[in-house]
Design a protein around this nucleic acid. Structure first.
Lengths: 335, 335
DNA sequence: GCGAGTTTTGCACGCGTTTGCAAGAAACTG
DNA sequence: CAGTTTCTTGCAAACGCGTGCAAAACTCGC
């Protein structure tokens, strides 16, 4: 490969006229080394361009400093936002993020976790899909921490962080009721992700409790196009809904665009719309979408704080449920 | 830390009743090992949940399989898209992506590259910012490949991949001319990134060659808000422009929204708009933005193919310039 | 059954670290 | 100044793996 190689601690030691251990100790916080040797080592390291080999260090310490982020559809606004938050906070915690992309195929998450094991990641954060139980066991047995975000698995061991989707769904229903809407609709995807299911259930249950009729339609993925198609389906019904809760902001944008362009409906006077995720586009003038913000910063903080703790050996940590924050904009009347 | 540890090749060897080397050879493609031992090793490995330690392997082979992606503003649609493409193709090539977030602060990219060196990354791909010359030298000396995407640095060594922004700018100008526009404008950010500068220059030069007047305004970052502000500034001029080329799609979206809402202008009949990047939102019904698609797939392919080659030792590879593809939608008249 | 040729296997070393241990130096105590 | 404590430092053993080398096992032709 490369003709020249990375410079090792050995060479630094030679140049500084000390032993290899002295070099190591210089770069190990809390190790005992005199001020003078430290200076000489640092000088030699600087001149040679030496940097501690974290591969070797990880080998020794059984702690690589690597955290795997396992996620599909990175390019999606919501996913990209949580990715950003996680990598940022990981860096501040002195860790480094390894990004693994998954797809919808079977075993995709499992393969990602195998990769995490190969690189001896200290932990893996799973944002998409659900790993096989056996792999989870293998990770835990190997001493690798696992964080499931909005995955809603029930086996103990991993840290599970969820957003209170049901509550959010219920709050939307009451908001629609206050706006005087009578015929509610829920526009969902066919993905069947637990969080999407909870949103739907919470919404439907609250609507029923309020004595409002509610219809559910499901189609495709969680993107813009699905929102358009669902608008076609819902807005052509004999009893046209006057309020729709879309499972994601992307779907809401597609829904609104179709509602305006193809059905000539005005939002919110003729149709109230709500979304979920508070992606950047929700605040754009063309949408001004009322939606829920997931507390991505707190989610990331909980996850990363837990990685620093030593509470292993138990049945795993308690699951955490965080509330979504309602972001009120102009796509619902009143407010 | 963890009570139990990762399982090593030693344990697999014991269980399979072979030597540790046999285990190693089983997992090394092209090594000589009999079919029978191979099977026994694979069986034992499966039962124990063994996975080769890539940290140790990287130590031996001087090849970690890690590629660092150095980028700021991951949550931005364009950045997220190229990130997605890079991680996907890296995985297909058997590499793994390490994601490092930078900010605007001084030395942010340099710190990221230091991190890449610590983890003995085989290569680093820089998507934002510009590293210091000395760090670049250190990377190259250490045998680490460097890819600069749209960074436009002039020192040899790294692979430089650029999009032909000037050409794109010039094509927009002629498109505006064909649409009968007379008073052109360029809405740029203050970032001053080389690619943004080239877009502006190409556009202005072509407009001048066509005998059209053109005005340039610059403000803020490359996001939606900057587009809004620039609309305020440009559309309140005594001689209002009838066509505007925005440096990015995000700015174009902000510009269009402001033009419609606050100035009541219709696109494209009263105002033609073009953008750059072809983010997903550009295709949304609210925008239908004519824009340029960067060939992210080809960019990623060039970068990753080069990582597989052995052409070190020279003055570095030839810089690559790729054309941007014009995506024609309805924000410009005619077509 | 024997020798030549081929494949497989085990041993031992090296990769760049960290770290326990013991020896040496320095500082402090009485 | 001897005795004791505190720091500092080098040695050597790990960590989990790849691989050159030589011994061992196997294959084949006769």
């Amino acid at each position: 490969m490369a003709s020249k190689l990375f410079v090792s601690a050995q060479e630094v030691a030679r140049r500084a006229g000390v032993s290899r251990s002295a070099v190591s100790r210089t770069f190990t916080p809390g190790a005992s080394v005199s001020a003078e040797t430290r200076q000489r080592v640092l000088k030699a390291a600087e001149e040679l361009g030496y940097h501690v080999n974290h591969l070797a260090r990880g080998l020794m310490r059984n702690e690589s400093g690597i955290v795997c982020l396992i996620v599909s559809d990175v390019a999606t606004p919501y996913r990209a936002a949580v990715l950003r938050e996680l990598t940022l906070q990981l860096q501040n915690a002195g860790k480094v993020a390894m990004l693994i992309n998954t797809d919808r195929s079977d075993g995709s998450v499992d393969r990602a976790l195998h990769q995490a094991i190969r690189y001896r990641a200290d932990a893996s954060v799973i944002l998409s899909g659900l790993p096989d139980k056996s792999i989870v066991q293998l990770c835990l047995r190997s001493g690798q921490r696992l964080v499931l975000i909005n995955r809603d698995d029930d086996q103990p061991g991993p840290l599970r962080i969820n957003v209170d989707d049901a509550d959010a769904g219920s709050r939307v229903a009451t908001a629609f009721a206050r706006a005087g809407c009578r015929r509610l609709a829920f526009a969902n995807s066919l993905a069947g992700t637990p969080s999407l299911v909870r949103r739907e259930k919470g919404f439907v249950a609250a609507a029923a409790a309020l004595g409002l009729q509610v219809v559910v339609e499901r189609y495709g993925a969680t993107g813009y196009e699905a929102g358009q198609v669902l608008a076609q389906r819902l807005l052509t019904r004999s009893e046209r809904p006057d309020a729709v809760f879309c499972a994601t902001d992307l779907m809401a944008c597609g829904f609104m665009d179709a509602a305006r362009r193809q059905f000539g409906l005005a939002v919110p006077s003729q149709l109230c719309v709500a979304g979920f995720d508070n992606i950047e586009q929700a605040s754009w003038l063309s949408y001004e979408l009322t939606t829920f913000a997931q507390p991505v910063d707190r989610i990331a903080k909980y996850a990363i704080d837990w990685l620093g703790t030593d509470d292993s050996g138990e049945d795993g940590p308690e699951p955490i449920t965080l509330p979504a924050e309602l972001i009120w904009r102009r796509s619902i009347r009143g407010g």
